[in-house]
Computed example of a mutant assay.
Amino acid sequence: MAVVRLEFTPEPAHVRTVRLVGVAVARRAGVADDQLDEVRLAIGEACARAVARHQRQGIRDAIEVAFSDGDRYLVKVIDHAVSEPLFTADDDEQQITIDVSASLLQGLVKDLKVTPLAKGTEVRMAWPVKRRSR
């Protein structure tokens, strides 16, 4: 099983790069072509959510991303922000981004798991792969 790991500073400009790498790894892993747009969008939303969580709390630690191509194509996005209530009285643009990203992920990814960590969250997404005959 091949694993590609990335870390990036919590800046929106880096999300595009992560999406590009993620789709390239997905294509190499054998994700069906008709699912690559879903993969691209889901990686973008998960990373945008992580960036917004970091920025909202003023965290400069890197966001971690791992892509692996075992029996399924697996993407993990780990942020280091403490958990907050979904909605607060003083919702701002970053909190709205977090909430919308979470909702979009639920609609995009059938195999989605969001796990709270001691400090942060892990968004785990998986897609089926078709192995090429050799």
Rank of each mutant, 00 (worst) to 15 (best):
R134V: 10
E64L: 14
R28Y: 11
G58R: 05
S101D: 07
I43N: 05
D79A: 06
K76M: 14
P10F: 07
V15M: 08
P85S: 07
V109E: 07
K110Y: 07
V4S: 12
A118F: 09
V15G: 09
G107T: 12
T121L: 15
K113Y: 08
A118H: 10
V65P: 01
R16T: 12
A89W: 10
I59W: 09
V25C: 11
V18A: 06
A81Y: 00
P128M: 02
R53D: 04
S103F: 09
A2N: 06
Q55R: 15
V65W: 03
Q94V: 08
V31Q: 03
E38T: 10
D90G: 05
Q95K: 14
D111A: 12
H54V: 03
R124K: 12
I78S: 11
I98W: 03
S68F: 07
V51A: 03
F87V: 15
L104I: 13
Q94R: 15
E64P: 04
R19M: 15
L74P: 03
V15Y: 10
D34T: 09
D90P: 00
G30S: 08
A42I: 05
D33S: 13
V23C: 02
F8A: 08
G22V: 02
L6Y: 06
Q55E: 13
G120C: 00
S83K: 10
L117M: 14
K130C: 03
V82A: 11
V77E: 01
V123N: 03
H14D: 14
V75Y: 13
A26I: 04
D34Q: 11
V123A: 11
D90N: 11
G58E: 06
L105R: 09
A66F: 07
V123Y: 04
A48C: 02
S103V: 09
Q95N: 09
V100D: 08
E84W: 00
D61C: 02
A50M: 00
A89Y: 11
E7I: 08
V109T: 06
T115P: 06
D34Y: 12
V31F: 04
E64H: 15
D111T: 13
L20H: 10
I43P: 06
R132M: 10
A48T: 07
R28D: 14
Q57N: 04
A26Y: 05
R5H: 07
T121H: 15
V25T: 11
L112P: 04
A62M: 08
A52T: 05
Y73K: 01
R72P: 06
D33R: 11
D79R: 00
L86K: 12
H80D: 06
A24M: 10
E45H: 08
Q55I: 01
R124P: 00
L20P: 00
P10L: 09
C47F: 01
D92I: 07
A52R: 02
L105T: 04
V31T: 03
